[in-house]
Write a protein that binds this DNA or RNA. Structure first.
Lengths: 234, 234
DNA sequence: GTTGACGGGTGTACGCCGTACACCTACCTT
DNA sequence: AAGGTAGGTGTACGGCGTACACCCGTCAAC
């Protein structure tokens, strides 16, 4: 009489860590990380909240697991190219991942601060990145500096201070334009200039991708110049 | 007969927005932002939780207010120096502020994402920074790029991926050194090298301040080279 | 002097959260 | 048949943000 011989329609697939993390990531993708709760994840999986705790230790460990899932989405390093191309491609791949999961930077940062060690996937990512620099002839000291220089960009995100604000409901107590211009003349000037050229770009009128690559290349060029100046001793 | 003529010991100073924000910042400084709750702030002020809501609209608005307090701690721009020195000093001042309030980057980032506009103090900071570049002869386009390049560093923090881990309770399931070295050879090599030189520096063996300035100068040098290449037309 | 508005602290209550703990059930091993 | 084990369940607790009704001291207008 076990399993009722298929009489009942099997109510759901068996839970496992992967499915829990997947549901959590999906929920965060569509509602932001603040809207993520153990109870909501359980509901999405058709399961009682406490069931999740058989697969993740607690919410923090769940967040760690989610990060690992995301870092796993980053492309592996290219083979048979110079370090600069490899780093560039890798960082851009990381950026693509983060654009798919805009809540990720915050989680990464907060988890980094709370934990003794980054998660294994992050460790592997960093290790591989260091390896790319080393293989490119960077001295160990220079790699060290380079990792710091890349800083947050290493994981693909910069602050995006001027994030796309179109499509947000207009702020009820926003300043009228003329007062805006009077109080923040430089911001206004910049915003006007950005809005003027390249009207083709939808949204903010600022090509985020271009800006990102501009910044990335500036950094990489700077590193390349340093590499040339100090030679390549290990 | 108003105010009882000092017969009762005045139980507490009257509440106001400033005192609420001050208590909130103090609490976050000593317990991290996760430990911050309206109830704890109220308790610290000897007041019932709902009293706070007469001075801040809600917790998010409180966080915004806290950011404004912090940004107000950043030194005003120096006068009568070149743009590079001015930017450098300002960014380093912002960094000092953030070292005093390590929870701030996370709050700034999360609030930036949730809000239509940054808080006024942040706006003023950004505006002033743009003004410094403009006064230094940067074209508006180049300022635009520069702001993006500075990215998170503009507000003084880089990711600090290798944050000081000394003084944290040892991770119970940390890898033994040899396995660490086998799995993450590059990280290990770098860590060893960093630990070797400059044993004078306490903590992680990595001079964060030096790394920060190294990265900052690399960026600024790159911008300076661009400035020279394109000339200074507005 | 009385009145009434009002700024600001209070008390209660609701619905959400993470999760400890005891349980129950279906399967696998022996 | 017996018992262990992995995994889903149910209940319960303490903490959170905050809506809402209240109450009291001050002060203006009459």
């Amino acid at each position: 009489m076990a399993t009722q011989a298929g009489a009942v329609p099997r109510p759901r697939a068996p839970l496992n860590r992967e499915r829990v993390l997947g549901a959590a990531v999906a929920l965060a993708d569509e509602g932001g990380v603040d809207a993520l709760s153990m109870r909501k994840i359980a509901q999405a999986l058709g399961v009682v909240p406490m069931a999740l705790y058989k697969h993740v230790a607690n919410k923090n460990e769940l967040l760690d697991g989610m990060i690992d899932v995301l870092v796993g989405e980053i492309d592996p390093p290219a083979r048979d190219t110079d370090w600069k191309t490899t780093v560039r491609q890798r960082v851009l791949s990381a950026r693509r991942m983060l654009l798919r999961h805009p809540w990720a930077p915050g989680v990464i940062e907060s988890r980094m601060k709370a934990r003794a060690a980054p998660t294994p996937a992050v460790m592997e990512y960093l290790d591989s990145m260091i390896g790319i620099f080393r293989a490119g002839g960077f001295s160990i000291d220079l790699v060290h500096h380079a990792m710091h220089v890349m800083g947050s960009r290493l994981l693909g995100f910069s602050q995006e201070l001027f994030e796309d604000s179109s499509g947000r409901e207009p702020d009820p107590d926003a300043l009228p334009p003329e007062e805006m211009a009077a109080r923040y003349p430089h911001i206004t000037e910049l915003a006007m200039a950005v809005a003027h050229d390249q009207e083709s770009v939808v949204g903010s009128g600022c090509d985020d991708q271009f800006e990102f690559e501009f910044a990335l290349d500036l950094t990489l060029d700077g590193l390349e110049r340093l590499l040339g100046a100090t030679g390549s001793k290990g």
